[in-house]
Simulated scan of single mutants.
Amino acid sequence: MLANLNDVLISAQKGKYGVGLFNALSLEMARGIIETAERLQAPVIVGTAEILLPYAPLESVADLLVPMAKRACVPVVVHYDHGLTFEKCILAMKLGFSSVMYDCSTDSYEENVRKTAELTRVAHALGVTVEAELGHVGDNDSSVEGNGYLADPAAYYTEPTQARDFVTRTGVDALAVAVGTAHGAYKMPPKLDFNRIEAIARTIPTPLVLHGGSGLADADFREAIRRGISKVNIFTDINVASAMGAQAAFAAGKRYMTDMVAYQIGAIATAVEEKMHIFGSVGRA
């Protein structure tokens, strides 16, 4: 069934488990994610991000994911992640996405508030939920030779008191927080500020989101969720799993796309199932 963030994250917040967002750019990815969620009776979030649109246009992703979500026997949120422009977020809603993230985290604080509040008013009128980001979750690719985000991630961390002001003024349904993670493959083990997660969770009623989840240790996921994270974003892990599935098919002598499909779906399903067990979302649908 097609759901929005409120349908799955409020229960996750109360139950102290996490719901995974897994981006899906192909039928194999979508099947690996949604079929696993159905088999495990787990709520799930699927979608894409603006940075991924060169690989799969927004319209094509909507045509794929929205009907699959509606047919599913578990709650499936179709989420547009890291929307960088107001126009693309509006388009995602028009195409049937049930949730959008408007990422204005690189703007000034007041501009982030203004732009996010404007989009939230529109989205809520359409029954669509909104995620925003406060602080800034960087990119591992920028952390070269000690420069970039990971050189001093604490400078970008989310402040609990500012988070309270932000959610009060914007009305967002979920808040992505900067607590030490980064997007992409890690070149060094991240050190999460669990005390900060807990402090933010105590300060605001809004479910918290952890970006940059791929590559974290299982213990880090569990502790972050225990401290207050309700949504965890994963893409790199299943992107790699899909490629590994294709490589396994070639190694097995498969040369046709039809022969490779099962390998890719199987590899993606394995990666998704592992995360759902870690997050504690199995049997929560």
Rank of each mutant, 00 (worst) to 15 (best):
G213N: 02
T203A: 13
S281C: 13
L150V: 06
T106Y: 04
H82Y: 13
T270N: 06
E110C: 03
A267Y: 05
G266S: 07
K231I: 12
Q264D: 00
D237M: 00
R227V: 08
V74P: 02
A185V: 15
A246W: 08
V76P: 03
L5C: 09
A37R: 02
E59Q: 12
Q264R: 13
F221C: 00
S60P: 03
D220F: 03
G148E: 08
E111W: 03
E110R: 14
D81W: 04
V8M: 04
I238P: 02
K254A: 15
E110A: 13
A125V: 04
E131A: 07
L208Q: 14
R284N: 02
V113G: 03
V137D: 12
L175S: 09
P153K: 05
D107F: 01
L210A: 07
K88S: 14
A62E: 09
A241W: 04
I200V: 14
Y186I: 06
C73N: 12
F194T: 09
G280L: 05
P160C: 12
C104P: 02
E274L: 01
V209P: 07
V209S: 10
G215Y: 01
A178E: 10
S11E: 15
K231N: 09
S242M: 13
I238H: 05
T206P: 12
Y256H: 15
C104E: 02
A30F: 01
G146R: 09
S11H: 10
A24C: 15
M244Y: 12
D63I: 04
R39C: 01
I234P: 00
E159L: 09
M68E: 00
